[in-house]
Write a protein that binds this DNA or RNA. Structure first.
Length: 279
DNA sequence: ACCGGAGCCTGTTAGC
DNA sequence: TGCTAACAGGCTCCGG
């Protein structure tokens, strides 16, 4: 489940592999993977562009390119649920290409970059201005723009459960199901509390908790449950530090109460009913 | 504006 | 054992 730490790990791993490399050709096996432009235009435009900038916004990877020394397009990749990116030497690429490999970029050093996605939810964009794709995203949780005042404003009058609101990318960008559950546990906030019910001290605690779990997630190179693997095929390690996520029926590490699982806004949600009270 | 639910996908697991 | 149904959770779209 790639969320902010997993995507950040991908961007950091991609930079040394791709920086300065040009795309000399491409193929698309599942058209819907390309969100924009059309597949034909994507193939025509990406050839001849060179990777120069590497960034992330929320769960989007931003791979900035240039053409003939001039500013080019940005290749945006969103992994959604099961997306993976791999770079292989030619002989290995031929062996590794399978029915889940939906996009192949051929690099000028002969290696192939694969976009692979079991469930086909992930998307790629090739755009001259990333802003159009990223327009609805809220602040970066690890940046200065994520403030108590702004967070309070976003949650005011919100009757929905805080768990669901944390998954809303226009409120804060990059938090997904794993890190939402872990942050709420760390902040001792019940996932069903309404957004508007949270007091300033709780918002403060929640912001800090979101930052702590995301930073630790990045340090551990992400959480590998069933699907997420890194560029080089290695797993992340943060799953070993999960306090509540997928720990249903196991004792809370703080108080020993058994961790419960409920469904909130169509998402499985894990929490300690003793440490995270409704108040 | 906000909220909840359907739909997109496929592999794995639970249950009959 | 073999089948089907439920589940996994990223996001967009739609109706109320």
């Amino acid at each position: 489940m790639p969320e902010l730490p997993e995507v950040e790990t991908y961007v950091r791993d991609l930079e040394p592999e791709l920086s300065g490399r040009s795309v000399i050709g491409a193929s698309v096996q599942w058209d819907r993977t390309i969100a924009a432009p059309s597949v034909g235009e994507f193939l025509a435009r990406i050839a001849g562009q060179r990777f120069v900038d590497f960034d992330r916004r929320g769960k989007y990877m931003l791979l900035g390119m240039e053409r003939d020394g001039n500013r080019g397009d940005t290749l945006i990749i969103h992994l959604r649920m099961t997306g993976e990116v791999h770079i292989y030497p030619l002989d290995e690429a031929i062996k590794m290409k399978d029915k889940h490999t939906h996009v192949v970029l051929i690099l000028d050093d002969g290696r192939h970059m694969h976009y692979r996605d079991q469930r086909k939810f992930g998307r790629l964009w090739l755009v001259d201005d990333p802003a159009q794709v990223l327009a609805r995203l809220g602040p970066e949780p690890l940046g200065e723009g994520f403030t108590v005042d702004g967070f309070a404003h976003s949650l005011a009058k919100r009757t929905a459960a805080i768990k669901g609101l944390l998954l809303n990318q226009s409120i804060v960008a990059g938090v997904g199901n794993i890190y939402a559950d872990e942050a709420l546990f760390l902040a001792s906030i019940h996932p069903l509390r309404s957004g508007s019910s949270l007091k300033p001290a709780e918002l403060d605690r929640l912001i800090e908790s979101i930052r702590v779990v995301l930073m630790r997630g990045i340090e551990m190179k992400g959480s590998s449950l069933q699907n997420y693997i890194r560029l080089d095929g290695m797993k992340g390690n943060f799953q070993e530090e999960h306090k509540v996520f997928r720990r249903t029926g196991q004792p809370c590490i703080t108080c020993g109460t058994l961790v419960e699982r409920i469904v909130v806004t169509q998402r499985s949600t894990h929490f300690c009913p003793t440490c995270q009270v409704m108040k």
